[in-house]
């Protein structure tokens, strides 16, 4: 899953590194908080990065005679906590890119996003759900499988977008030459059928061993109220940031109205669309009559969040 250099356009690499910057910052802050209670975390991240490196290097036998290797994202998240795992895996990927020629240097951001963010966090979320339902091992297995497949899907999307993003005037791709139709199935079949199961077996067996041999060394999540606070913070941040959508000129791909579609197709919009069902929403295109557009965006975001919150409240069990 390590994307090499020159498969992603420099613009994509830039975007991915920019996306990773806040994640790394939050990870460092989170780990700093973890250090206050558990002081050995600093050296532990360094040593754990070495462990992650060895896990990725170790080839496991799979029926049929070939081998595959695990990434161990979900497992590390369960052992060290997701934030520390994110840092340790990022570090491993950095060293692999610089010193061992595995994965690109420019593509480091994209690789880190796929393997150091998606894998540990998805894995850890599933593990926590499993823990609440008293089936930790199943939670971890599901998390490991989902995590690696989601990471593969993201890698497939990143690669498959390249022919759309970067091509010459004649439409010849400049970077990864394969479109989404090829990259996503190619990445996913390999991971759904083989690598996913290798990851599951690896994670479950190692977890089982540690749970039996030294259960106290496993990472204990802090009280959940705090993690919800972060979630609410993120939500408020997103609401405030929602007018950013206005910065993008033009309508999102596939969200054109009939007029825009006709312009793009240079012919009339398909008959099925002009005569189809038309729904006039109350606040069409997030614009409320008589209000400025950014304010309309924020109000729309708040409304959506409140409607979801009310729906959740309706579904909530009485204590």
């Amino acid at each position: 899953m390590h994307i090499p250099d020159n498969y992603l356009s420099p613009a994509t690499c830039g975007v991915m590194i920019t996306a990773m910057a806040p994640i790394w910052t939050v990870s460092v802050l989170k780990v700093k908080a973890q250090i206050k209670t558990k002081k050995e975390t600093v050296p532990l991240i360094g040593v754990a990065a070495a462990l992650a490196f060895l896990i990725m290097m170790f080839n496991l036998p799979i029926p049929g005679g070939t081998t595959a290797h695990a990434v161990g994202g979900a497992l590390l998240a369960v052992l060290l906590g997701p934030w520390a795992a994110c840092l340790a895996l990022s570090l491993t990927l950095l060293l692999q890119a610089l010193l061992f020629g595995d994965g690109g240097v420019l593509a480091f951001g994209a690789n880190a996003f796929n393997m150091a963010v998606i894998m540990p966090f998805v894995g850890y979320a599933c593990f926590q759900i499993g823990q609440r339902l008293h089936h930790e091992k199943i939670g971890l297995a599901v998390g490991a499988y989902l995590g690696i497949n989601l990471a593969a899907l993201t890698a497939g999307i990143e690669l498959g977008l390249q022919p759309l993003l970067a091509h010459t005037s004649t439409g010849v791709a400049l970077y990864c030459p394969y479109g989404l139709k090829i990259t996503i199935p190619a990445m996913l079949t390999a991971h759904l059928l083989i690598a996913g199961w290798v990851e599951v077996l690896f994670s479950v067996f190692v977890y089982q061993f540690i749970k039996k041999a030294a259960p106290t060394t496993l990472y204990q999540a802090p009280a959940t109220a705090k993690s919800f606070k972060v979630f609410y913070g993120l939500l408020i941040g997103l609401i405030v940031l929602s007018p950013l959508g206005l910065l993008a000129s033009g309508t999102a791909w596939g969200e054109w109205n009939n007029h825009e579609l006709a312009q793009r197709l240079h012919t009339a919009a398909p008959a099925g669309m002009t005569h189809g069902f038309h729904f006039n929403a109350l606040f069409s295109d997030y614009a409320i009559h008589g209000l400025s557009l950014p304010l309309g965006y924020i109000l729309s975001a708040v409304t959506a969040v409140l409607i979801f919150a009310v729906a959740m409240r309706v579904l909530q069990h009485e204590h």
Binding site: E40, L44, F58, L79, F202, F205, F209, T217
Partner: peptide, 28 residues
């Protein structure tokens, strides 16, 4: 074979922890 891998990497993880604890003690 995976049972053995669980054992191998489980032991390796415990060793990782030992190293980290020793290192921290030495640093302190």
């Amino acid at each position: 074979p995976y049972q053995m891998i669980g054992l191998l990497f489980g032991t390796l993880y415990l060793k990782t922890r030992d190293y980290a604890l020793d290192l921290y003690a030495a640093m302190e």
